[in-house]
Design a binder for these strands. Structure first.
Lengths: 316, 316
DNA sequence: CCAATCTATAGATAATTATCTATAAGATAC
DNA sequence: GTATCTTATAGATAATTATCTATAGATTGG
């Protein structure tokens, strides 16, 4: 029995014949002519190499083999029906996968969105990739994920981005640092200090350094640290100053303080970025819609910059 | 999603792509060219209207929808594998149905064959139809069964028959009947007696009456009875004489006796009859082969007339 | 950077399929 | 016994499918 050239249409016709016990009736129901049905059945029998129905006294008798095939078909169509249901859920965003890659810093804010989303859509898989900017950028280049979260989005040649949250950078110092007590600090006061910074290429550092450069300053004393937590702790213990995202700071941590640097405003934004040359999963589209509608409830309103409607519209 | 024009070949190709995670490898395994596979997958995706696999960095990634379809396909092919197994059993005669129609009298002998056969092939359905000659003949005309059992087979235009057992007819009388004590009886002694007979058309009666007619005798006193049992009992109670198949008589019944009618030999045979213009089920073919090989063991050897080999050979 | 490997696309073709119409032959019903 | 209904067969055709070859673009591995 060579299944290869059997189509589902053929099985559909066969099933109708078994159900109606009539070639002519099947033809009527399926909007075919009677010879077409006769021939289809004949072909199916030749493929199976076994009589499936027998005609006797203008009545169709289904053979044992025919009835078994009928049952097989019922099961098979049942599985495809199930698959259809699955697809419907997938398309409705109730199921599926939304793979998100984000830079380290984003892990302080994104869970506030992901938690409620995940509760609403418990069947959606949400694998998260967290890395430094270079790593996430590499993933983005290869298109390994559905959604990327950057502050400072990369070249948008094959991508679209939408801002959703301010990412204010602040200077932090130990409480007993000499600048901590000054009510007004300027950039000039800072450049001679030792700075604890993330690796070159990190958005925070890039932003800070480009600001410095444009104003003709150069840092004389920097220490590279691998994580924002490390910077925070090191700053608290007096190793130097830090520039970090406001969101990174625990609300009530008193081991350090923010400097009020008057002449520097290192404001950036968080972006959702998606590639336009790759298929975006239904779940990912659905997540972005959810974000658009729920940003204000999930995140601190004062920082929200909801520009996701444009992004979502452009994805339709 | 319109399944109609999807063939199993297409699913086979898809499954191979999922398994190998490679279009080229699939092409090699299925002896196709790479573009063919690419195109097949494309067509399947268009049919499902959902991406099933995504290519990234020369690697095939299977989407959620693709994996679900793969699982569906596995189940579907599983069902068809089961069906194949079922067909194999059907063809081997281990499964299926063998519908047998027989005249009343045959029910005394056929079970001796059917019992052992059924024990050997417990999964074969063996629906039996028992009727008088006219009824079985009607079924035969309509081809409602696989095998018919007749003594005196009907016209064999669309049928073949094979003898398997003698069917000797004997005259029986009550023990106290005046003829019972005579050691030699002739036909002439009998014609004036009252005869208890089956309906006209029954093979037994036909055979007896044709013998009478050819020798110029006419029965003057007959009573029609509906069953062989009724005749046996009525004869035992002295209502008249009977002509019945030897096989109908219980071995040790002493309520009547057989007459030794010297000048009459009403010998006929039991035949298996099959229609040649109808498909014969594997189970039926198998049963006839079984009968051919086991007649001697199952039935009283002295009556066996095994001419089934010709019948079986002509059915191949 | 080059050679090898991968997938996608375009264009072509032979085979297969899904249909139809017309017709025949067998069965049923009144 | 005629009209009606059923299935089967033959012949025709348009659509679809399964393939191929050739080629291009991307990626990978030295």
């Amino acid at each position: 029995m060579d299944l290869r050239h059997i189509s589902f249409r053929l099985l559909e016709v066969f099933m109708c014949v078994v159900k109606t016990r009539s070639i002519s009736e099947t033809a009527r129901q399926l909007h075919l002519t009677q010879p077409t049905v006769s021939q289809q059945i004949k072909r199916l029998q030749e493929t199976v190499n076994e009589p499936l129905v027998m005609v006797n006294q203008q009545r169709i008798h289904v053979t044992e083999a025919g009835f078994a095939l009928f049952q097989t078909c019922q099961q098979v169509f049942g599985h495809f029906d199930d698959y259809q249901d699955y697809l419907a859920e997938l398309r409705g965003g109730e199921r599926g996968r939304c793979k998100i890659a984000m830079v380290n810093t984003a892990q302080y804010i994104l869970p506030k969105l992901l938690g409620p989303y995940s509760n609403l859509h418990p069947h959606v898989e949400l694998p998260l990739e967290i890395g430094n900017r270079a790593e996430v950028l590499a993933r983005f280049e290869r298109g390994e994920d559905d959604i990327y979260v950057f502050s400072h989005p990369p070249s948008l040649e094959h991508a679209k981005a939408g801002r959703f949250l301010q990412n204010p950078l602040v200077f932090i110092a130990a409480n007993n640092h000499k600048l901590a007590s000054k009510s007004h600090v300027t950039l000039h006061d800072l450049v001679s200090e030792r700075f604890l910074l993330r690796e070159p290429g990190s958005a925070t550092r890039m932003l800070f350094e480009s600001e410095l450069q444009s104003r003709g300053f150069v840092l004389s004393n920097t220490v590279q640290m691998a994580s924002n937590e490390a910077i925070r702790v090191a700053v608290g213990s007096g190793m130097g100053l830090g520039v970090v995202s406001r969101h990174v700071l625990p609300p009530h941590d008193t081991s350090f303080c923010m400097l009020n640097v008057e002449d520097v405003n290192l404001a950036s934004h968080w972006y959702f970025v998606v590639r336009t040359d790759r298929h975006l999963s239904h779940a990912a589209r659905n997540f972005l819609k959810f974000a658009q509608l729920n940003l204000e409830q999930c995140l601190d309103k004062q920082w929200v910059t909801n520009e996701l409607s444009q992004l979502n519209e452009s994805l339709n």
